[in-house]
Nucleic acid binder design. Structure first.
Lengths: 208, 208
DNA sequence: TGTACATCAGTGAACGCGCGTTCACTGATGTAC
DNA sequence: TGTACATCAGTGAACGCGCGTTCACTGATGTAC
């Protein structure tokens, strides 16, 4: 058998410079992230699929992550960071009015979730056997609590603030999750849903 | 090699009477249901695992279901039926007060979800490629709409009723899903969360 | 300046496993005659 | 009443596939002397 010169030969990856293996690490992370975004399901992602996507040998992943769980956990961590930044940005852009701030945070949360439905599902999927994964996103919740306290003009530790914050988080979470799970339901206007909830929660009458 | 008389020989299943293969069908459904309840994840259930649980040959499942998707769909359908019955029962037990009825439906929904977290997740997991699976639970939503209309004393078709119903469903869904996804979060009292939401939604002041 | 060598990044063959699906089968039950 | 046979419920071996993980390897880069 003659080996043709332009055969579909696997282009062996040029190893990174000493101490600079981090480049491949990022590529692996991004590929895993893409796969999770597409499927929205942790169970459908495999080391081999990630390696295929990056164009490397499966075993090369072990150079950067101890196993699949660790890789997925790293993706989750990254996305939670992004969600946090998203909310901070939305809040900063909303100006000084406390109610506008709360509305902006709610809309920002929902916008993030609906823009990345696969990632959002993964972020709140039943934990991989990993222990601490359950505590993800707590700082984000603190952001929400602070905004609610400001909007209600109460101290952050007030039990009413705790209840309202929790219920608003519950609501926006349900909004993202249910809309992605039931895309063909006859959903009302998105902002109308959010505003109505914020208004009723703050005790304003909804604008008629 | 001598065959020991009391060897762990597979006890071949006694075939059902003619026309009464339905018995095994139920056993298969129940086993699949149990596996889904335990994992809460469609992707971890396999035909072979179901067969193992029932104690039959894997191929026997094909006598009753065309494939794994159909089996899982059958389980989903069953659970949605149960959820519907649950809400009807809770509503009937709540007496004639419209607000009490709404509260009862909310509590019933959440109670069902938290009592069967694995099933609840499966019911709202990204659809198997099956088409109509997306429409599950619509009658249940109609029940909620009727109760909300009664509590607000408005016709069922009023846009306000639609918005409130949708937002309440969104809320109870979020409550179930988020609590099961974040079991170690410092959750407030469950009924306090539900009642607070119902009260604010109906425009009552929460009891101080 | 030159050479031997350790190190680091990445490879690829091989393993054992669980999976869905196929196919020819077994054997008791009921029916035709 | 007896016997041949179709039918129905369920079996089990075999297939090809994708998976995680192991292990010995390759080859360029940097360092010691």
């Amino acid at each position: 058998v003659t080996v043709l010169p332009d055969e579909q030969t696997p282009p062996r990856r040029m190893p990174a410079r000493r101490g600079k293996g981090e480049a491949l690490r990022s590529e692996i992370l991004e590929a895993a992230s893409d796969l999770l975004a597409e499927s929205g399901d942790v169970a459908t992602v495999s080391l081999r699929a990630v390696a295929r996507r990056v164009g490397i040998a499966t075993t090369s992943i072990y150079l950067h992550f101890p196993d699949l769980d660790a890789l997925i956990l790293a993706v989750k961590r990254q996305r939670f960071g992004e969600l946090g930044e998203c909310l901070e940005t939305a809040l900063a852009a909303a100006g000084t009015d406390p109610v506008a701030g709360l509305r902006a945070v709610g809309r920002g949360y929902v916008a993030f979730g609906l823009a990345h439905p696969g990632h959002y599902r993964v972020m709140f999927s039943a934990s991989t056997r990993e222990a601490g994964a359950d505590a993800f996103g707590l700082e984000t919740f603190d952001t929400l609590t602070a905004v609610v306290a400001r909007a209600l003009d109460l101290p952050s530790l007030d039990p009413g603030v705790e209840l309202v914050s929790t219920n608003l988080w519950t609501f926006v979470h349900g909004l993202v999750h249910l809309r992605t799970a039931r895309p063909s339901f006859a959903w009302p206007d998105l902002d109308a849903q959010i505003d109505d909830m914020v208004d009723r929660t703050l005790g304003h009458r909804a604008p008629d």
